[in-house]
Nucleic acid binder design. Structure first.
Lengths: 216, 216
DNA sequence: CTTTATTTTTGAACGCATTCAAAAACAGCT
DNA sequence: AGCTGTTTTTGAATGCGTTCAAAAATAAAG
């Protein structure tokens, strides 16, 4: 196991992440990465199709970490609010040292043609996994049946929006994002409760209509 | 008036937009633009700080056009739904021939450091103007007092999200986005109506709390 | 009309992501 | 060991956005 090839790949990735953290994503050149990793420039491109591929690799690593940490956290409480916050907060922590990488990701993310977009085909597996964490957080919670199936994906979208806000947030420790996260979450939870009231029937209908249309 | 300098600037911009439309934004090089406009490469950079500056210039032109067209459209009806649709649909039309430019804009838009971000400082004037169209559309409509002041900005945000969706939408004529636009708008309008009910007090409180936090 | 300052234009040069053809290392097979 | 195909590595070359120092055109002042 652990072929030499695989080791080289890891070395390049590790080196790049270290440099990104130290000097920033834009300020780090692929030449830097390669030479610091002790290979020729071309080698970096043998293992990673492009500079942004390194970002994707980083993103995949955060997913690994989530797979390790989240099950425990979700098991620790049945309270939906806490569970969801655990998921979102983990993302914040993971990106805290790599804000610029998130920029790069979102940049790519807006481009429908770019293979590495978090909304694109190539990242489908990891996206579905991320969405699935919200599904697990919801386990045991009763939600209106008609919107239930859409809820995990909606929460994922909500998380993306928050990440974008987080990126712009210059308050120390991104306090403001923290507040916004909790406030919007409280709102969501309240709406879920209210959504079960009979009065809300017509609203739910409209919501479901929107969701049907947007469904991929 | 109409100094030669200004003419050159216009010529470069026109040329670039023509090329962008024909060959696409990425496929068009600054050298292409310059030579097609009959100037040296450097000249393009004398008038536009960067390739994306051309996109900003295009965006400013759409704002000019809006200033010409929208007053009439808004005056034509008092119906809020129609007014808002007029604003949003105009944007779709304006970008229809330049989908890739929108990509470039949104790309830049996610980067807090980039001067040309539609959320950034440099574009504040035009952003506020865009927001103001929604404010005008709302004139004469009664909305809950506490969220009223936030509503134009919220609608602008809603429009940005729709534009992003529009960008990804491959259905002919972006039909799906059209449907989504109307369905979400109907939902918004219904929520506004319901929001005035006393029962909704607590919800409105929460919404306002969110808005206060997010306020720039 | 000179002289001097300012704006505009030029095209070569720079830095960086990315590509590519060729070499080197490796693996499997006889 | 020798042969053949595959994987990995190399570093020079390519293309493009952008910068820059110097020239040219223009405007202002005397």
């Amino acid at each position: 196991m652990a072929k030499k090839s695989e080791e080289t790949r890891e070395r390049i990735l590790d080196t790049s992440l270290a440099l990104f953290r130290e000097r920033g994503f834009d300020a780090t050149t692929m030449r830097d990465v390669a030479s610091e990793a002790g290979v020729a420039t071309g080698a970096a491109y043998y293992y990673f199709r492009a500079k942004e591929d390194l970002v994707l690799a980083f993103y995949l690593r955060t997913a690994d970490e989530a797979r390790e940490l989240l099950p425990e956290q979700l098991a620790a409480t049945k309270e939906l609010r806490k569970r969801i916050l655990a998921i979102v907060n983990l993302k914040y922590e993971q990106f805290a040292e790599h804000r610029e990488l998130l920029t790069a990701m979102l940049k790519v993310g807006t481009d429908p043609r770019h293979p590495l977009s978090p909304f694109g085909k190539e990242t489908k597996a990891i996206r579905e996994e991320s969405i699935d964490w919200f599904a697990r957080a919801l386990e045991g919670t009763s939600v209106p049946k008609d919107i239930g199936p859409y809820l995990p994906r909606l929460l994922w979208l909500w998380q993306m929006a928050l990440l974008m806000y987080w990126l712009w947030d210059e308050t120390p420790g991104q306090r403001r994002t923290q507040k916004l996260t909790e406030a919007t979450l409280d709102l969501i939870l309240q709406l879920l409760k209210l959504g079960s009231l009979p009065l809300m029937g017509p609203v739910r209908k409209r919501v479901v209509k929107v969701l049907r249309i947007a469904e991929e």
